[in-house]
Amino acid sequence: RPMNAFMVWARIHRPALAKANPAANNAEISVQLGLEWNKLSEEQKKPYYDEAQKIKE
C-alpha cells in the first residue's frame, strides 16, 4: 500500500522525535507525530501530498 502524505512526512520526522523522547514508545511517538502534523498548514503539507501522489503513480 503506498504511503499517504502523513506517512511521507512522518518517515522524515520520526527519528528526530524518537531521539528527543527516548523514553517514548512507538505508539506515543505516533500520537505526537499526529499532533505535530495537524498543526501544519495546508501549504506546509502540500509537498508531502505531492510526494504521496508521485508514489501512487
Rank of each mutant, 00 (worst) to 15 (best):
R1W: 12
R1T: 14
R1I: 13
R1M: 14
R1E: 13
R1V: 13
P2V: 11
P2R: 08
P2A: 07
P2D: 12
P2T: 09
P2F: 14
P2E: 14
P2I: 09
M3I: 15
M3W: 12
M3T: 11
M3A: 07
M3L: 11
N4F: 08
N4H: 08
N4A: 05
N4G: 07
N4S: 13
N4K: 06
N4C: 09
N4Y: 07
A5N: 01
A5M: 02
A5L: 01
A5I: 02
A5D: 01
A5Y: 01
A5V: 03
A5H: 02
F6A: 01
F6V: 01
F6S: 00
F6C: 03
F6I: 01
M7G: 06
M7T: 10
M7C: 12
M7N: 09
M7V: 08
M7L: 12
M7Q: 05
M7K: 07
V8N: 03
V8K: 02
V8A: 04
V8M: 08
V8G: 01
V8Q: 03
W9P: 00
W9E: 00
W9Q: 00
W9K: 00
W9C: 01
A10P: 00
A10L: 05
A10F: 06
A10S: 10
A10Q: 07
R11T: 13
R11H: 14
I12H: 07
I12C: 04
I12Q: 06
I12N: 04
I12R: 07
I12T: 07
I12G: 03
I12D: 08
I12L: 08
H13D: 00
H13C: 05
H13K: 09
H13N: 10
H13S: 06
H13R: 15
H13G: 02
H13M: 14
R14E: 06
R14F: 11
R14G: 13
R14Y: 13
P15R: 08
P15Q: 10
P15A: 12
P15D: 09
P15M: 08
P15E: 13
P15S: 09
A16N: 08
A16F: 12
A16E: 10
A16D: 07
L17K: 03
L17V: 13
L17R: 03
L17H: 03
L17Y: 15
L17T: 04
L17N: 02
L17W: 08
L17S: 02
L17E: 01
A18L: 14
A18N: 05
A18D: 04
A18Y: 07
A18M: 15
A18K: 15
A18F: 08
K19L: 14
K19W: 09
K19D: 07
K19M: 11
K19V: 08
K19T: 09
K19R: 05
A20P: 02
A20V: 07
A20I: 08
A20D: 08
A20F: 05
N21E: 03
N21D: 05
N21R: 06
N21H: 13
N21S: 06
N21A: 03
N21T: 05
N21V: 02
N21G: 02
P22T: 03
P22R: 03
P22C: 03
P22E: 03
P22Y: 03
A23T: 12
A23E: 12
A23P: 02
A24P: 02
A24H: 06
A24Q: 05
A24Y: 12
A24T: 04
A24E: 02
A24S: 09
N25T: 15
N25W: 03
N25E: 05
N26C: 08
N26T: 12
N26Q: 14
N26Y: 12
N26W: 13
A27C: 07
A27Q: 12
A27R: 13
A27F: 09
A27G: 09
E28M: 13
E28D: 10
E28Y: 09
E28W: 15
E28F: 09
E28K: 04
E28N: 03
I29R: 02
I29C: 02
I29T: 02
I29Y: 02
S30Q: 13
S30H: 13
S30R: 13
S30P: 01
V31F: 14
V31W: 12
V31E: 11
V31S: 07
V31Y: 13
V31D: 06
V31A: 14
V31R: 13
Q32A: 11
Q32I: 15
Q32F: 13
Q32W: 14
Q32L: 15
L33N: 00
L33A: 02
L33I: 03
L33E: 01
L33Q: 02
L33C: 04
L33K: 02
L33V: 01
L33S: 00
L33G: 00
L33D: 00
G34S: 13
G34W: 13
G34F: 15
G34Y: 15
L35D: 06
L35Y: 06
L35W: 08
L35R: 12
L35P: 01
L35G: 03
L35E: 10
L35S: 07
E36D: 09
E36L: 15
E36F: 08
E36C: 07
E36G: 04
E36K: 07
E36M: 15
W37A: 00
W37Q: 01
N38D: 12
N38L: 12
N38R: 13
N38H: 05
N38C: 06
N38Q: 11
N38S: 14
K39E: 04
K39L: 10
K39S: 08
K39I: 04
K39T: 07
K39D: 05
K39F: 04
K39A: 09
K39W: 03
L40Q: 02
L40P: 01
L40G: 00
L40Y: 02
S41I: 03
S41C: 03
S41R: 04
S41N: 11
S41K: 03
E42A: 14
E42S: 11
E42M: 14
E42F: 14
E42K: 14
E42H: 12
E43R: 10
E43V: 10
E43C: 05
E43W: 04
E43Y: 08
E43L: 10
Q44E: 14
Q44S: 08
Q44K: 08
Q44C: 05
Q44N: 05
Q44V: 07
Q44A: 11
Q44F: 05
Q44D: 12
Q44W: 03
Q44T: 04
K45P: 01
K45Y: 01
K45D: 00
K45Q: 06
K45V: 02
K46H: 06
K46W: 06
K46C: 04
K46R: 10
K46F: 04
K46E: 05
K46V: 06
P47H: 03
P47V: 07
P47N: 03
P47A: 05
P47K: 09
P47L: 05
P47M: 06
Y48E: 00
Y48W: 14
Y48Q: 00
Y48N: 01
Y48L: 00
Y48H: 02
Y48F: 10
Y49R: 12
Y49C: 04
Y49Q: 05
Y49I: 08
Y49E: 09
Y49M: 09
Y49D: 04
Y49A: 11
Y49F: 12
D50L: 11
D50G: 04
D50T: 08
D50E: 10
D50F: 08
E51F: 10
E51D: 05
E51L: 12
E51A: 10
E51W: 11
E51I: 14
E51R: 11
E51V: 09
E51Q: 10
A52Q: 03
A52F: 10
A52N: 02
A52Y: 12
A52S: 05
A52V: 07
A52M: 05
Q53P: 02
Q53D: 12
Q53E: 13
Q53S: 10
Q53R: 10
Q53A: 15
Q53L: 11
K54Y: 08
K54F: 09
K54T: 09
K54C: 05
K54S: 09
K54P: 05
K54L: 11
K54E: 08
I55S: 04
I55K: 04
I55F: 07
I55A: 04
I55N: 09
I55Y: 08
K56L: 15
K56A: 15
K56C: 13
K56F: 15
K56G: 06
E57V: 09
E57C: 06
E57I: 06
E57M: 06
E57F: 07
E57T: 07
